[in-house]
């Protein structure tokens, strides 16, 4: 059994920066995976990302990136790209954490062999809980890259019998607490 992390990185309150968590939750709603695969909305991790990376056979991260490309372009980076490009290539708002975490994991001998960063070029990082049109249009392409990587790693996945609702609570305009705590005895006194 291979231990695989599929991790969405980004701040869901800052527009297209939420694309990583969004893709992670889409994948979780649509597919089931081999035992050993974990799909996690990582938010904007700092060095605690080391813990998430360590001891995995493969890591697939999804994040917004800041490359020279049209918004919505999906760009792939391999482990060597991430570790090498540190000072030169502008790639990712959270890159200091990602690069530092990967370099630390490497130093401690716990880094995964296979790392793929599925980057989606953002249009806007303005505060707000919605993705821009070009980034929304890129969601399926990003998911395709994640699945292709799973194929390459020899990890199985299959569509859910009944696809669940996508748990992207932050995009809801109404209330979201009911999701966490089903008790509707909470009253409103007028």
């Amino acid at each position: 059994m291979k231990k695989i992390l599929i991790g969405g990185i980004g701040n869901v309150l800052l527009g297209d920066d939420g694309v990583g968590p969004y893709v992670a939750r889409l994948l979780d709603a649509r597919y089931e995976f081999d035992e050993g695969v974990e799909v996690i909305d990582l938010g904007t991790p700092a060095l605690d990302l080391i813990d998430q990376l360590s001891g995995r056979d493969g890591v697939i991260l999804i994040d917004s990136v800041n490359a020279e490309a049209d918004p919505g372009t999906v760009i792939l980076y391999r482990k060597a790209d991430i570790m090498r490009q540190r000072p030169a290539v502008r790639m990712d708002p959270h890159a200091p954490a990602l690069v530092d975490a990967l370099l630390s994991a490497e130093l401690f001998g716990v880094a995964p062999v296979d790392v793929l960063l599925v980057g989606i070029k953002a249009e806007s990082f303005e505060p707000g809980c919605r993705l821009s049109e070009p980034v929304t249009a890129a969601l399926d392409g990003a998911i395709g890259e994640v699945l292709r990587e799973l194929d390459r790693l020899g990890v199985d996945y299959w569509p859910r019998e009944c696809a669940g609702e996508i748990d992207v609570w932050w995009t809801n305009e109404g209330k979201v607490a009911g999701r966490v705590f089903e008790d509707e005895s909470i009253s409103l006194r007028r």
């Binding site: 701040n11 309150l13 904007t44 700092a46 505060p127 809980c129 979201v176 909470i186």
Partner: peptide
Amino acid sequence: KILRGRDPRDAWLFTQRFCGV
């Protein structure tokens, strides 16, 4: 500003996304 107009019971889910640390 994202919090204005929302249900106060939900605020904590949003505020814990202020910072990843």
